[in-house]
Amino acid sequence: MYEKKVRSKGKNMSKFPPAFDINIHIDDSAGVEMEGRKFGFKTIIISVSDTDWVNTILKKIDEF
């Protein structure tokens, strides 16, 4: 479903949350962060070692 919807719009990327009305994508991949910058969607990148990830996300949401 994802590939069909995103690729039908001529996009070639691993993630494109706007296609599914998602405002912010949370991930642990720096590559997704680069795609967000390139294709204009908001990302919050969390380190896998972040033991306080919930608060990290909440703080970054406030920055938007």
Rank of each mutant, 00 (worst) to 15 (best):
residue 58 L to K: 09
residue 33 E to M: 04
residue 24 I to V: 13
residue 10 G to Q: 02
residue 43 T to H: 01
residue 19 A to C: 02
residue 13 M to P: 11
residue 37 R to T: 03
residue 45 I to L: 00
residue 14 S to I: 14
residue 3 E to F: 06
residue 19 A to I: 00
residue 38 K to P: 13
residue 13 M to S: 10
residue 62 D to C: 13
residue 44 I to Q: 02
residue 17 P to A: 07
residue 3 E to V: 05
residue 42 K to G: 01
residue 7 R to W: 11
residue 53 W to P: 12
residue 36 G to V: 03
residue 58 L to E: 04
residue 12 N to Q: 13
residue 10 G to D: 06
residue 28 D to L: 01
residue 44 I to H: 03
residue 62 D to W: 08
residue 16 F to W: 10
residue 34 M to W: 15
residue 50 D to Q: 08
residue 1 M to Q: 05
residue 21 D to H: 07
residue 30 A to W: 06
residue 29 S to I: 00
residue 53 W to N: 11
residue 25 H to T: 15
residue 64 F to H: 04
residue 18 P to M: 10
residue 25 H to L: 15
residue 23 N to D: 15
residue 60 K to M: 05
residue 53 W to K: 12
residue 8 S to E: 03
residue 25 H to I: 15
residue 5 K to D: 03
residue 26 I to Q: 09
residue 40 G to Y: 03
residue 59 K to L: 08
residue 14 S to F: 14
residue 55 N to A: 06
residue 31 G to L: 11
residue 20 F to E: 07
residue 41 F to Q: 02
residue 39 F to C: 11
residue 4 K to Y: 13
residue 35 E to I: 10
residue 11 K to D: 10
residue 27 D to L: 08
residue 30 A to G: 07
residue 11 K to E: 13
residue 36 G to W: 01
residue 6 V to D: 06
residue 54 V to K: 13
residue 45 I to Y: 00
residue 21 D to E: 08
residue 26 I to A: 09
residue 63 E to Q: 07
residue 5 K to G: 00
residue 15 K to A: 12
residue 56 T to V: 07
residue 45 I to D: 00
residue 43 T to K: 05
residue 52 D to V: 01
residue 56 T to L: 04
residue 52 D to A: 01
residue 6 V to I: 11
residue 14 S to H: 14
residue 48 V to L: 09
residue 45 I to R: 01
residue 46 I to G: 01
residue 5 K to M: 02
residue 27 D to R: 07
